[in-house]
């Protein structure tokens, strides 16, 4: 059963997404801070991380860079409430190493689950 780490400082959002993922059969770990996320990844070695770009104790971009350095194989899905449809920061986030998908809040369950499945099983998608 794949383990997914959700990193989001918004507890409600974090809880809601983990409920969705758990009901889809994933094991979910939550982290609300950068430090927590780094620790959690080191400890439980998740199969995938969903990271909110804005964090209270650090930048999501930094976190992604660190996660990718320590676990280059870890696929990361990025999402943020600060993206706007035409904003090119979304495009830039997409180009980051390790990032497999970028979503803006609010993201839809189906979109998220599809992206997770694609990330965990690239062959199946291909």
């Amino acid at each position: 059963m794949p383990t997914i780490l959700i990193v989001d400082d918004n507890l409600l959002a974090c809880e809601a997404i983990s409920l969705v993922l758990e009901s889809a059969g994933f094991q979910v770990t939550q982290a609300h801070r950068v430090a927590e996320a780094v620790e959690s990844v080191a400890k439980s070695c998740p199969d995938l991380a969903i990271v909110d770009l804005s964090m209270p104790d650090g930048n999501g971009v930094d976190l992604i860079r660190r996660l990718h350095q320590s676990h280059p194989a870890l696929p990361i899905i990025l999402y943020s409430g600060f993206f706007t449809p035409e904003d090119d920061s979304e495009k830039r986030a997409m180009e980051m190493e390790g990032v497999v998908a970028v979503f803006k809040k609010p993201l839809r369950n189906n979109d998220l689950l599809a992206a997770i499945r694609r990330a965990l099983d690239p062959e199946a998608d291909a």
């Binding site: 918004n10 809601a16 997404i17 809040k105 609010p106 839809r108 369950n109």
Partner: peptide, 11 residues
């Protein structure tokens, strides 16, 4: 609001 909408949509 976007952050707040997230759990509403998800749930």
């Amino acid at each position: 609001l976007n952050n707040t909408l997230q759990p509403i949509f998800s749930l």
